[in-house]
């Protein structure tokens, strides 16, 4: 059974998470402040952490930095909407994913599973979801069994998103993974490549199946 540490100052949110996560087979422990959360992290060694940004005692980014100093535990940030800049900073600062309040429990659990999976180590298992199959060994992408003709860069982009396994990938980290430290200069290329990938993967632009844009944050593959 996976142990979840919920750091949130709102009693009602904690209660909601406790009930719904325990119903789905998680064990939950709770903390109401950042410092309590850090103590709980050391004492209870959770498998995954849900971190609310509006904590009364300290800034969420500072809490995340302290967490990352001691542990590689997956962290999913819970925030209100329209804080995209903060979210991007947190994702680049080591958070694994985020959900915005209000959220649906199903979606949260999917994100948690994706994050937990990543912690098992970089998977060379093929990624499959809704007809999409990414085979890392063969460096091949297929939809409904049909192999797509992708350029090496296009493949690399899809592979990064697939390895994240449904977790969000910020634009900045995507750029760095593909083009290295100077990746920031390639924003235009990324946009062009993505358009091309989408043309090849998605039929109707108004009904996208695979690559989801999180406005202002980054991209993710639709999970299974």
């Amino acid at each position: 059974m996976k142990r979840v540490l919920v750091i949130d100052d709102e009693e009602q949110i904690r209660k909601l998470l406790r009930i719904s996560l325990e119903a789905r087979g998680f064990e939950t422990v709770e903390a109401a402040t950042g410092s309590e959360g850090l103590q709980a992290l050391a004492a209870l060694r959770p498998d995954i952490l849900l971190l609310d940004l509006g904590l009364p005692d300290r800034d969420g980014a500072a809490v995340l930095a302290e967490i990352r100093d001691r542990s590689e535990v997956p962290v999913i940030v819970i925030s209100v909407r329209d804080r995209e800049a903060d979210i991007v900073a947190l994702l680049d600062g080591g958070a694994d994913d985020y959900v915005t309040k209000p959220f649906a429990i199903g979606e949260l659990v999917a994100r948690m599973n994706a994050a937990l999976r990543r912690r098992l180590g970089p998977s060379e298992e093929p990624f499959g979801s809704d007809g999409l199959l990414v085979d890392f060994e063969e460096r091949r992408v297929s939809i409904d069994g049909e192999i797509l003709k992708l350029t090496p860069t296009e493949y690399a982009i899809v592979a990064v998103l697939a390895r994240a396994g449904g977790r969000i990938v910020t634009k900045a980290s995507l750029l760095r993974e593909i083009w290295g430290p100077l990746g920031d200069l390639e924003q235009g290329s990324l946009r062009v490549h993505l358009s091309s990938i989408r043309r090849k993967m998605e039929g109707d632009p108004s009904r996208r199946r695979f690559i989801v844009t999180e406005p202002g944050v980054g991209y993710r593959l639709r999970g299974e």
């Binding site: 235009g188 946009r191 993505l194 358009s195 989408r198 632009p205 108004s206 009904r207 996208r208 844009t213």
Partner: peptide
């Protein structure tokens, strides 16, 4: 940021 207008429209539909 530079954005693809079609992508913007598609994202809006998705959202």
């Amino acid at each position: 940021d530079d954005n693809d207008p079609v992508d913007l429209a598609a994202t809006a539909i998705e959202t």
